[in-house]
């Protein structure tokens, strides 16, 4: 597998297993700068594991992961990460403003307080995701879609080069979804985005490239996914209808 210069993410023959069962099998994947990659696959197929491996939360027992040419633990500061579940306690007494500002905690350094410049940056970032008016609200009082935007803001505040989103569209209704994807499209002008989703039609409409994963990866550095790949990955025939789109996810069925 050749690794070229503009690969922001590069996985080479990555194997991950947990309790002796294999989750990811010989994954090789190159993601180029400013790509917008959608990752689909069945539940338990390893989508979240793949994302967590990219960010270094899970160590592969074989193979190499490089982010911007470095080990994920070193290049993590360039990654914005939005986790799948908002595992945060919704009863936690914290304001939207504080959640977003928390994104700065890592690079702020110990024994330093947040400055008024930091606070200004928080407000600017909230503006990007259109959530300024909720700044003082408790995070638990927001809807799922609004919370998602807040967590994206927290990921964006460090001006990352890569944005990793794990099922960000769960709990978002159809109206908010198109708004949400247009926000991502805007962000994609400045950063590489990788998005995990179970929603194939949403993915097909908005991303530039698609990878399908179920232990193994099916990826052709394009938006094309072969029907047999999908069927292999999902283990059954899948009807994929991309709604009124000029491009398609599946090649023409013969």
């Amino acid at each position: 597998m050749d690794t070229s210069h503009d690969d922001v993410i590069s996985l080479e023959h990555v194997w991950v297993s947990y309790n002796e069962s294999i989750i990811l099998k010989d994954i090789s994947l190159q993601v180029k700068n400013k790509d917008f990659l959608g990752i689909i696959g069945p539940n338990g197929g390893g989508k979240t594991t793949l994302i967590k491996t990219m960010i270094g939360l899970i160590k592969p027992h074989n193979g190499r992961v490089k982010i911007l040419g470095q080990d994920p633990n070193r290049s993590r500061k360039h990654i914005g990460y939005v986790a799948q579940k908002n595992y945060h306690e919704s009863n936690f007494p914290i304001s939207v403003f504080e959640v977003v500002r928390m994104g700065l905690c890592g690079k702020k350094g110990f024994l330093k307080r947040y400055s008024s410049k930091d606070d200004e940056l928080v407000l600017q970032t909230l503006k990007v995701v259109g959530m300024t008016k909720h700044s003082d609200k408790e995070i638990g009082h927001l809807s799922g879609g609004e919370q998602q935007r807040i967590f994206i803001a927290r990921a964006l505040i460090n001006n990352p080069k890569i944005l990793l989103l794990d099922e960000p569209d769960v709990g978002i209704d159809a109206n908010m979804q198109s708004e949400f994807y247009s926000l991502l499209k805007k962000l994609n002008k400045n950063m590489t985005i990788i998005l995990v989703s179970h929603d194939l039609s949403a993915i097909s409409k908005h991303v530039k490239k698609v990878a399908c994963i179920n232990q193994e990866i099916y990826y052709h550095d394009s938006k094309e996914i072969k029907r047999e790949d999908i069927e292999k990955a999902y283990g059954c025939p899948i009807d994929l209808i991309a709604h009124g789109v000029p491009h398609r996810v599946l090649e023409e069925h013969e």
Partner: peptide
């Protein structure tokens, strides 16, 4: 940060 979101704290280094 630790109490609110331990995983994200790890990600932030």
């Amino acid at each position: 940060a630790l109490s609110f979101d331990e995983e994200y704290s790890t990600v932030m280094g």
